[in-house]
Each structure stands twice: as C-alpha cells, then as structure tokens.
Design a protein around this nucleic acid. Structure first.
Lengths: 218, 218
DNA sequence: CGGCAATTTGAAGGCGCTCAAAAGTAGTGG
DNA sequence: CCACTACTTTTGAGCGCCTTCAAATTGCCG
C-alpha cells in the first residue's frame, strides 16, 4: 500500500528543498535518489519556469490554481508512482505542494518534443482522462456524490482495500471537490451515521458498504 | 475567423458518417478530404474502440460524458484547427458529436506510442491545460463568472474580436458550465441589460465592454 | 400563417454556503 | 503526565444562489 501517513519519518529528513534546474537522472533509472519535501513544502509555483516532470516515490502531492481573491481549486492529488508536472509551454500554470512528507524523483526534460515523448504521452493522457472525469463530478454531481466518488477513487488508487488513508485535510478535500470544509465534514458524518463508512481517525476511512458507496457516487 | 454558422452549406453534403477504422492520411498531409458530419451527428461514442485522432476543419464539436440518469457534462468544445480524441486505452470514454455542420479530418494511429508521439504530446497537453482551467471554473466560480469566462474564451479562440459566434445551444453551454439553461439565459440577459454584451441573435454575442467582462470572469 | 422547438421570464423551494461556536487533535513545555 | 495553546474538525442556525417547475415569448421552417 502507498505510504500516506502524514507524520511518517522520512528516509531523508535533511534536504528541505530540491534545486530545480539541476540535471537529474533519465526517467526510469533509479540511481538518482528522490528529493524529500516536508509537509506543505512547495514543489513548484505558478509562473515558474517548467520543463521537469515529477514522480511521486512516496507521500502525496496537491496540484492547484488560485483565483485573485484566494479561492483555490485543487485539480489533482498525486499518490505514489504517479507522474505530474506536464506543461505545454515553459511556464507552470499551477502550484504543486507536498501534502505530507513526500519523496519526489525529478526528470529533467530538454524538450517535450524529445525522444521520450512516446513514453510520456500515455502518462499525460492518463492525467487528461482523470481530469475530464473530475469535470463531470464538479459540473454535474451533488455534494454526497462528490464525496462518495472521492472516497471510492482514493480506495481504488490504494489497491481497492476498505481501509483508505487520506493524507490530505478536509480543506484539501473541499478544494478538490469544489465544496466547503463544513459541507465535506457534514457528508462524512452523514455517511458514517448511515454505516456506509467508519472514521477510525481523521485521516482514515473504512468503507463498510461498498455497494451503497458506489450507488451514492452515481 | 472560424466558420461557426450552424446552417452553412457544407462542401460535401453526401457522406453522413465516416467509416471509422479506415486508413486515413498521415497527420499534416492535406490530400485526404475531411469527412462531413451534419449537425447533431455522432463522431464517436463511449465504449467504442478508439485509436484515431480528429482534427476540426470547420464547424464545431462537443465532447461529453453522461451519468446514468442522463445528466450530461460537456468537457470541451472544439473549434476549427483543434485536435481531439486522445484516449489512454483503446476504448473511448466520451461521446463526440458535431454541433453544426462540421468537417473532420481523421488520423488513424496504430499506437499512441508510435513515432508521432513527439507531435502529439503538445496537443494532448494543450487539452490537459484547458481542461484543468475549466476545473477551476466549475469548482470555484459562480454563474456570472462562468458565463463571462465562457464568452471571453470563445472570443479569444475566434481571434479576440468583439463579435463572437456561438455554434452551440444554450443547453450545450449549460452542460459545459455545469448550470441549467435557465440560469445561462438569465445571465446572458443580465449582461445585456448591463450593456456588457449585446445579443444580435441567438447564436451571436457582441462584447461591448471588454474590461467589465474580464473582471466578471475574475 | 401555423406548428414546433428553443429561449426567456416568473415564482417558489432546496442545497450548499456563510457565519458562529463547540468539540476534538496535536504539539510544547512545565 | 498533564496543562496550555493553536489549529483542525464538527455541529448549528440562517440565508442566498441556483435549481425546479411552469408559462410566455421568440425564432425557425414548412
């Protein structure tokens, strides 16, 4: 199972921040050690020069945009083994932050039109499909459906087990689902009272009734 | 300007439907004539075998998903010169339909991991960025902001002129913005009364106050 | 002109938000 | 180990935006 504990002791607690722009190992090669980001640390920011890709070794990442008045939309969470950071031009359009202690392997790309495009395209398309699925959730599903879909999705990405670890806060979940923290909390409570889920602690969900959860997710 | 008229007489009014799976010209080559789809015609459906890419020559396309109860979310509109149809596996996850009389050039791909990935990746990323921008709109913007952003986006994609042609119905716009047709209609009317836009006819918008529209789009 | 569909307009209600306060959780230091 | 603090999460009450349902109007094409 992916390591999602927020307060796990990291393999390398030193290097607080990677030096972006350094030459890193080619993709797939595992000689280069991952860089460690403590909880809340920025991985890249909107407006920064891009050109790298990032692979989550352990932990979790949130990718988001901000409106001028501070409203935030998290476009994706990335868990272990997922690749993110795709950009069209040389500038980042989003922010990326470690949610908990997170190991990131960086791949420097000279150009997106390089010889590795063949390997990269399927990963980019994976993200595209996932984002389009999320559009349906935000555009056409109500609060219960959104939360149910979120829990089901997190479970699937962690191996389909009933025990689901949530590295992110309620605020993160809310900003991912286009809801408020209060609404997210209320739905969790409602699902708990209906015995669809159990909440062993703040960062864990146990799915009790898979069938019902799936139906609620529509 | 892109040709967006719904009832334009097409160059080839015969072939109502392309035969999918046929060998088509390599991408970029223009020898192969585009296939014509009349308004409302399905280009591909969810669950169908994929493997092709589609380039809009003229007209407009809507790509969408459906929930079991019929709720629809349009994930993207595609206008002239845009490429769509990217999929991870060999099955379509979405529906694609011509909005108005539309010419489509089909590119058959033997594999997404083929030698053209270098050209394809930037196009896929273009769509990814656009979809992620749309997530922000659906997740965190209110009805006025959504409609304003939509009008501004359509204008930009048609050259930034104040005269904007809307090939799609109010229902399409609503299903793209995650609203109801009534709300979309009300917002259009409100913007008209505030002299931000004019509505010469049902399928046209004239942007009168760019500044105000941009501010409303946040 | 007449018929049908799309759009607009109106009225009422509900879902999720805002504001507010209580309860729970974690980290720190005595 | 417990007290203290700061923060997150939960719970409550009231409201507002958008939806739902309904009807009028407009636009289109025979």
């Amino acid at each position: 199972m992916a390591n999602l504990e927020t307060h796990r002791i990291p393999p390398r607690a030193d290097s607080a921040r990677p030096v972006r722009g350094e030459v890193c190992s080619p993709f797939g090669a595992s000689a280069q050690a991952p860089v460690f980001f403590p909880a809340g640390k920025e991985i890249y920011a909107q407006g920064e020069k891009s050109g790298n890709l990032y692979k989550v070794e352990f932990g979790a990442v949130r990718v988001y945009r901000l409106l001028a008045d501070g409203r935030r939309q998290i476009s994706a969470f990335h868990l272990a083994d997922e690749v993110f950071g795709f950009e069209t031009d040389s500038t980042h359009h989003f922010f990326a932050e470690a949610i908990c202690g997170t190991g990131i392997r960086v791949l420097r790309l000279s150009s997106f039109r390089d010889e590795r495009a063949g390997e990269l395209l399927p990963m980019a398309l994976e993200g595209l499909i996932r984002t389009q699925e999320h559009l349906l959730v935000l555009g056409r599903q109500n609060a219960v459906e959104r939360v149910a879909a979120f829990i089901a999705d997190m479970s699937e990405r962690q191996g389909g087990l009933p025990q689901v670890e949530l590295p992110m806060s309620r605020a993160d979940i809310a900003d991912y689902l286009g809801l408020t923290i209060e609404t997210v909390s209320r739905i969790f409570t409602r699902l708990k009272h209906k015995d669809v889920i159990r909440l062993p602690n703040l960062r864990s969900v146990e799915i009790v009734k898979w069938q019902v959860l799936q139906e609620l997710a529509s």
